[in-house]
Design a protein around this nucleic acid. Sequence first.
DNA 1: CACCATGTTCCTTG
DNA 2: CCAAGGAACATGGT
Length: 283
Amino acid sequence: MPELPEVEILARHLRPLLHGRTIRAVEVFRPKVLAPTPVPRFQAVLRGATFLDLTRRGKYLLFTLRARGSRAPFSLLGHLGMTGRMFLTPKGRPLPKHAAVVLDLGRNRFVYEDPRYFGRLTLDVRPVARLGPEPMAEAFTSELLAGALKRSRQAIKVKLLDQSLVAGIGNIYASESLFRAGLSPRRPANRLSRVQVEKLWQAIREVLTIAIECGSTIPLNFEAHPSDKLFYYGSAAGAADFYTERLGIYDRAGQPCGSCGTPIKRIVQAARSTFFCPHCQKS
DNA sequence: CACCATGTTCCTTG
DNA sequence: CCAAGGAACATGGT
């Protein structure tokens, strides 16, 4: 479930639930997701620690905690990979099949589950230092984007997935942004005109903003709806249409473009699907 | 069985 | 040195 909007929604959801909660015990079912932090160190550091805050950076979750009797806070870094979920559940409830880490919070447990185990929950925060600017931050200007794109011949769609360029865009919102900007996903990054970069810059911010707004209207309740996939596809009681109509281009190969009716095409770039309208996205 | 899947990192090749 | 492509990671859905 993870690109910037989904991670942002999750952070907003979990922040108040975790604030002030103290970890009583730490169960690690998949040591791989902690790497390179060793299991004993992970447990020793987290046991007795209290959650102070939770923020998002790109697709990462940054938990701030404080050890018992200490003033200095420390960070825990989370990433959902392709299929990760994090949620609170009352103690006694059966754990999901692919629970990777479970934190005992007293009445509740914090569960990180991930069927593919591509995600992370670790004390190693170094990956954050490699991220480019937040797309919604003032630091991310269209001038900055133009400067970065000028230096690459890579197809613009592929370039948008580069987290060191701008953090948080994934395979879905890369296609959505280019569709909104009316740009061909195949165009080399350094061949976008200044006007096209400006359009793309705006489209990225609009697409992400709309996705966050959309997700914010939906109550996250994994307890009542254990099969919820946050707000990607269908699912979720009571708001199915809302969800499925959210994305204009992604996963719609063969369907008519909402703007011109031309059938949407799927191509493969850098071993990943790209969806676009061959009529609206010629340039 | 085949192919596809919201991500990142590492390795190879040019 | 850099860019680009592909594999690997691991499981589930169609």
